[in-house]
Amino acid sequence: MSLANVASPLTPPKAGLRLQKQFSWVRAREACVRAMLLGCASLSLLTTLAIVYMFLTEAVYSVTPDTTAFFQDVSLWDFLTDTEWSPQFADKHFGILPLLCGTFVIAGIGSLIGLPIGLAAAIYLSEYAKPKFRRMMKPVLEVLAGIPSVVYGYFALVFVTPYVLRPMFQSLLRIDVDIFNAMSAGVVLGVMIIPTVCSLSEDALRAVPRGLREAGYALGSTKYDVSLKVVVPAAFSGIVASFLLAISRAIGETMAVCIAAGQMPRLSLNPFRSMETMTAYMVGASLGDTPAGTIEYKSLYAVGFTLFVITLGMNILANWVMNRFREVYE
């Protein structure tokens, strides 16, 4: 830099250097890209709208004049209170209760098995396990979560029922166990939700600050006291949310229960008989190649709608619990 330069007044702007906004292809491309990305992002909204539109027109109120929706043919009252579900018989009944019963019995058995085991595993991984063991176990749980539902169904049918349930209940306790039964479906469902419960609960447990654990130890706690009486209560909202999400997943689970529990709509609490869940009905009805427009076909949407409302409700509840009761640790 020469001295002369320093002393000289401001250099005049180069021709062509303008900072003002003006049209250019670069700017046009930016705007174009932005619009396209917005399009991608709004596709998820479109999906939701399509789901809602589908249920409204097929189940609640048909928009086309010459067709009717399910609830225009069957009253909501019958749907909710009739205790028989027999769309394929001459004497058709459309009472959702047997399907709801099957769904909740199986999901209930699954929860009784999966939730405690998943939570205990989460406590072990977060509080007791050495980091090395944790790093080894996490991928195993991921593999467990990645096993397709069909495989679990097969496992229930060819292993759980003949080699676990029948020796235990039929040979020892003299309780008849059907080859298709709700118990085996519930057992594999329990295994299926373990990874969900475990990883979400573990996240919640690990988010509990160390100071809280130290405070617990300083008051003369054993590791058991700290884990169960300090850390678990502090992570309670996260644990509840993980439970709700897992139950919602269990309710929506299809292939495993369809294979293992069979397709016999039954309003009963006996877990050793065949039962039909909402999801299994939907699979079964589609297998029969039901022609569009018939009442059986429309019942698919009514059942799907019920399932959708229940799982959506549970997911929203889970999110609400997570946000409402989250303890704020800085």
Binding site: T47, I51, T254, Y301, G304, L312, N315
Partner: peptide
Amino acid sequence: NLSNLAGVPSIVYALL
């Protein structure tokens, strides 16, 4: 919307 869609059972997507 995304977090709710992630929880929708696959059978509902099938219907869609």
